[in-house]
């Protein structure tokens, strides 16, 4: 449980950081909160030769509103997400999710950028970002490009991020005021990754669902935007049959592995249960009940 040798770098600007990452290539890894990377290094599942610490990049921190979107700097910690009034008002699902990640100690170090860039299907924020239709801003010496969260994840630990690229910010469109939201996460204990989890954002028009977006965490090698399930719900009053059909649609795209949290069958079923429960909670919040 001791990492191999590595060289530690602490750049003071984004330009310097991406320059380092580009020149060091595949053997270099950005280091944010270290709470995914360092455990993997201790297990020697990762042995980067260079760590580029993002801790000195003040530009990457903070939450601000910009033209209908909330922009979150990559090194904003999960604890800072929880404390942000802006998020609590505009994107309460982020706060709800952050509170379900790991434990207070880890949330003090772990960053949202590390959480979404890591590519671990167990991370909670990627599914939430897919649910919210967020964009990721990726920076390299060549400049910036934007990749949608829904297009970013390719497989477990495989993402659209290229060597030499840094995720610098997340841009999240703000759902209308009064929207319903929920992140339902089934886990064995505090500090555990999800057995299955579902994120829901919806808006209601009278008694019917006007818009709905559903995403799933940790029931496949990547987070899943449950498009069919989301569509099924729109225009309904979320009657029992619809909720059941949405849960079935979500289960249909889930492809979990058997692990200590349960069999593949159980985890797929739980994806359905989490969807049903998240829909119910989001609905009651949208109705203000």
């Amino acid at each position: 449980m001791i990492p191999g040798q590595f060289v530690y770098h602490r750049p003071s600007s984004v330009a310097e950081a991406v320059g380092l990452l580009a020149s060091l290539g595949e053997e270099a890894r950005p280091l944010a909160g270290g709470h995914s990377l360092i455990p993997m290094m201790k297990l020697r599942m990762a042995s980067p030769e260079h760590l580029v610490d993002l801790g000195g990049l003040a530009d990457l921190k903070g939450v601000r509103e910009e033209a209908g979107s909330i922009v979150i700097g990559a090194t904003t910690t999960q604890a800072e997400l929880i404390k942000s009034d802006l998020l609590a008002n505009r994107l309460p699902i982020i706060r709800e999710t952050a509170l379900l990640i790991a434990d207070p100690q880890i949330r003090t170090k772990g960053t949202i950028g590390g959480n979404v860039a890591n590519g671990d299907p167990g991370n909670d924020m990627p599914g939430v970002m897919q649910c919210l239709a967020a964009d990721y801003v990726l920076t390299s010496p060549a400049g910036e490009r934007v990749v949608a969260a829904r297009d970013f994840y390719q497989g477990a630990y495989f993402t659209a991020l290229e060597a030499g690229e840094l995720l610098t910010a997340l841009r999240v469109p703000v759902p209308p005021a009064g929207h319903g939201f929920a992140y339902e996460k089934l886990k064995r204990k505090v500090g555990d990754y999800a057995t299955a989890a579902a994120a829901v954002i919806l808006t209601m028009n009278g008694g019917t669902v006007a818009t709905c977006s559903i995403a799933l965490t940790n029931v496949a090698p990547t987070p899943l935007f449950a498009e069919a399930a989301s569509r099924l719900v729109v225009g309904t009053s979320l009657d029992a049959a619809t909720v059941k059909a949405a849960a079935e649609a979500a289960k249909a795209i889930a492809d979990p592995a058997t692990d200590g949290r349960g069999t593949a069958e159980y985890r797929r079923e739980m994806a359905g249960v989490m969807v049903a429960r998240a829909l119910a909670k989001a609905e009651s919040r949208a109705k203000g009940t």
């Binding site: 434990d103 064995r188 204990k189 505090v190 500090g191 555990d192 990754y193 692990d259 200590g260």
Partner: peptide, 16 residues
């Protein structure tokens, strides 16, 4: 051997 770490081996915290 499966799950020989505190991620899987259940050690309850004060919350559970």
């Amino acid at each position: 051997v499966q799950g020989a770490s505190f991620m899987d081996f259940f050690l309850p915290t004060a919350v559970e």
